[in-house]
Design a protein around this nucleic acid. Structure first.
Lengths: 218, 218, 218, 218
DNA sequence: CATGAATGAGTGTTCATTCAT
DNA sequence: AATGAATGAACACTCATTCAT
């Protein structure tokens, strides 16, 4: 089969004829349709990934039409951006909710709770997160949003590390986020056959001990 | 696809031009051209990622023609498989080269050396590794190869952990590999602006302490 | 295909645009476009033959776009199948309409009428008939349809032969069909510069006498 | 797939740089190689048909190389022409060998012998005959050769018909040739599962009686 | 608001033909 | 004479996006 790929860059159409996106005020039905599309998109992205997902897949999953899609989103990236916003909100909430992480059992519990939340959110928004992390998304704004979502979490962790007297330099935080994100991915992608609870336990222990410096006893 | 000429549907072609790459015996010139294509592909994949990379990009980077590409590879995925084989070899070598990791400074040194090697290899083959890790590669063989490459490293680390009396359960190894892979990615993607040396130091310390249980003093 | 976009390899698409033609419910406009394509295809096939015909030729003849073609047909062969179905229907009708062929003048008249119908239908669907007869069509279904269309005619003739007490063995029927089909082809291809009426007369006489055993006087 | 088809017409290359064809004087080895190619081509044409046959198939079947092919033939059509010449010779011989066809048993025997020869030759050169009969061969010369081969046979039959006092008008001859050619095709293509001997018998009887006017008793 | 149909640029792939060795 | 390698024009096919109803 030869078929064209996600084109490098479509010939730039006049832009904005419909100016569909989120700007417009939406009534009840409109909101509902938009929601349907967003949810469908998440499901499709989860299954095929952002790049491989076709507008047609999303539209079909949402049981609506192509025309309707472009009534709500300027294009596929616009939809990604919308999802990125939602994701950033959830990450924010997560970041805000991270309490102090003392070196004792309560610290471990707090970490575990936090990681649990992260894994859950990742389960929903993973494809979105990965889409911008791959850096091949053209839209600057979407990328920025993604980075901020990530950064929020990182900052929160950095603060708690700092507070606990543990090193919180850029490289350390980076390694921590790396472990977190990719572990979550391994989990949802089922590639390495890890159990969620075991992973949660391991992450908690490893981070508590390795990053926050909790003693082995804890 | 879609491919132009009427696909041969009846009798399956015996093989030869068309049944491209690795099977055929290649002479000096052929080997050279194939190498040119593989190298060009790595550069292009690094820049655009596997999915976004067009055969045309590769061909242009290799300063050769479209037709020549298909003289050596059945398609883009076939080329990916070839690169995956190379990558698996390097990973193997890396895995084999990992010595004991005692809890003292020599252990840290060994880890650092190993991570350094990993980062270097990742710098070359990262796009290949990510391609199969995204799981959107159709070819079972290519995926299997990728997984094996990864597993080799993981096993080597697991053995050393076990040997050092540290926990080496599936979840732990998974988390370690997660940190390793994604840190390497952050580094090469330059998204988080981390310095290679700092990252290397952090990884070494974190793993030595957090996974191998080295005391803070070490 | 060669088809541009990365072929969907994983989950088989549910169907809809992409799973084109006949399945989907079509509205008035859709039916019209499909008809336009079918008609255009017949013209193009007639001019260049099935193999040499390019989708582009068909699309241009139908004054529509490449994309539209694939909205209605999976590929060129799928379109051929659609035409084969139509052709089979006409052949069926023809076969059903063949009355008794007595050895007198009325028998000759009936044969002539029948051959006239066959030549007309062949004029329309000849390229389709030849496409499957050449046996180089991959699609089993299309071939089957073609064979059935042919067989229908052959059976009808066999029945009338039998009824008239003339031999109706496989080889005889085969020779009769051979003469019929190829004569029709010679006529439409204008290669041998035969006149339609003369041919019709000759066929009638030859078959009536040679196959049905009518005496020379008749 | 998408792959290009037998291109409508390649960009006309300067023409004749090699002037490969038959003109050149060939030594023993040269003749042998050329023969190998011609034979291989016939096999490949028989299997895939002329259009679908690729130069690569022929070259592989002949156990030689692309370069060699173009040392002996200007292109694929040039080779077809060479085969057409051979075919025309055989047809000529056949035509010349057709003796009188009286209305008695000796006439039937002569016809049978002749048809047998035709079927044999058709078995060898059928693909060539069909290639030019389809009329989609660009080369005028090749087509002319084919037509002549056919015409030779037709004339011989016409003469014998005339001699026997049977009608030998253009349309009748056309119908006769139609039956002959297509019956031969049905036989070699194995599409209608006819037995060679039965077919030969039927053809003989039908032609003797239907065209030459032999009485049923004969 | 919603929809089905139309569009065409963009891409993978094939294969006839040429060329350097 | 022979060969393996290279080339690139030609074509099938996909899918993001627009539009008429």
């Amino acid at each position: 089969m030869a078929a064209p790929y996600p084109p490098r860059k479509r010939s730039p159409r006049p832009a904005s004829p419909g100016t569909p996106a989120q700007a417009r005020e939406l009534r009840a039905q409109g909101r509902k349709t938009m929601r349907k599309l967003l949810d469908a998109a998440m499901r499709v992205f989860a299954e095929r990934g952002f790049h491989a997902a076709r507008v047609d897949d999303i539209v079909r999953a949402a049981r609506t039409s192509h025309g309707t899609f472009y009534l709500y989103f300027a294009n596929k990236e616009d939809l990604l951006r919308a999802l990125a916003v939602e994701c950033a909100h959830e990450m924010d909430a997560l970041a805000v909710g991270l309490g102090a992480v003392p070196r004792d059992a309560r610290g471990a519990a707090e970490l575990r709770r936090f990681f649990d939340g992260f894994l859950t959110t990742y389960g929903r928004y993973g494809p979105v997160i990965r889409a911008w992390m791959e850096g091949h998304v053209a839209d600057r704004d979407a990328t920025a949003l993604g980075v901020r979502a990530f950064t929020d979490i990182a900052s929160a962790l950095a603060n708690r590390l700092d507070e606990a007297g543990a090193p919180a330099d850029r490289a350390t935080i980076s390694a921590l986020m790396a472990m977190l994100e990719r572990s979550a991915y391994f989990l949802v992608s089922r590639q390495l056959e890890v159990d969620a609870d075991e992973l949660l336990d391991s992450l908690t222990t490893l981070v508590h001990r390795g990053f926050f410096g909790a003693s082995v006893a804890a």
